[in-house]
């Protein structure tokens, strides 16, 4: 047993690292900022990202919608997920490579089956079949895992899916319908 003096914070394991290792799919929990949302993916947006190139960005945008497809959510929600992935790639070369190689693999799988790139495959069910064939890859699991936080920890999504969230500052749900069910 040795003495240690680094500060308590420095000694704690990196939290994001922990989330990954623990298997809790929340890498990025709490990082959702409120950047302005764009209504549709534009080339300008895609080019503004730093680590991923425009083709990769478009592929990932299509893919994220196919992994967790919510017709009621705007593209802006999925663009934020891609922004998050881009930021992670910019910070970490291994992530950058994982994503770039993954996109290449995805396109290869698409060409193999349908003779075209992933984004050009028109039917959702065909694209899902491609994703299913890649389900066990680290690339797919990275996208899927990050999306759990990227989509479902986003207050803009809560509104659409009907989760009212924090309530203490509003006095709880005591006078706001905690027992208002009427159809039983």
């Amino acid at each position: 047993m040795k003495d240690h003096d680094p500060s308590d914070e420095a000694m704690r394991p990196d939290r994001r690292e922990f989330m990954k290792k623990s298997g809790v799919a929340v890498a990025g929990a709490g990082v959702m900022s409120t950047t302005a949302l764009l209504a549709t993916p534009t080339d300008a947006w895609a080019q503004a990202l730093t680590a991923l190139d425009a083709g990769e960005v478009k592929t990932l945008l299509r893919m994220t919608r196919d992994v967790y497809p919510h017709d009621g959510l705007s593209d802006g929600i999925y663009m934020k997920v891609v922004e998050m992935l881009d930021a992670a790639a910019a910070k970490d070369p291994a992530t950058d490579k994982l994503l770039s190689d993954g996109v290449k693999e995805l396109n290869a799988a698409a060409r193999n089956r349908f003779k075209k790139d992933y984004t050009a495959v028109a039917k959702e069910s065909d694209r899902v079949a491609i994703l299913q064939s890649m389900e066990s890859t680290a690339f797919f699991q990275k996208i899927r895992g990050d999306m759990i936080a990227g989509i479902y920890n986003n207050p803009d999504v809560w509104k659409v899916l009907g989760y009212e969230g924090p309530s203490a500052h509003l006095g709880g749900y005591l006078k706001r319908g905690f027992d208002d069910i009427a159809w039983l």
Partner: peptide, 26 residues
């Protein structure tokens, strides 16, 4: 809440079956 249920309902599940449930969270 939605953040936890998405992670715990059926860990690893994705696609329309999963989003069908999340769309009906309320």
């Amino acid at each position: 809440g939605l953040p936890f249920i998405s992670a715990f309902l059926e860990p690893g599940m994705w696609g329309r079956d999963f989003t069908w449930a999340m769309d009906r969270y309320e």
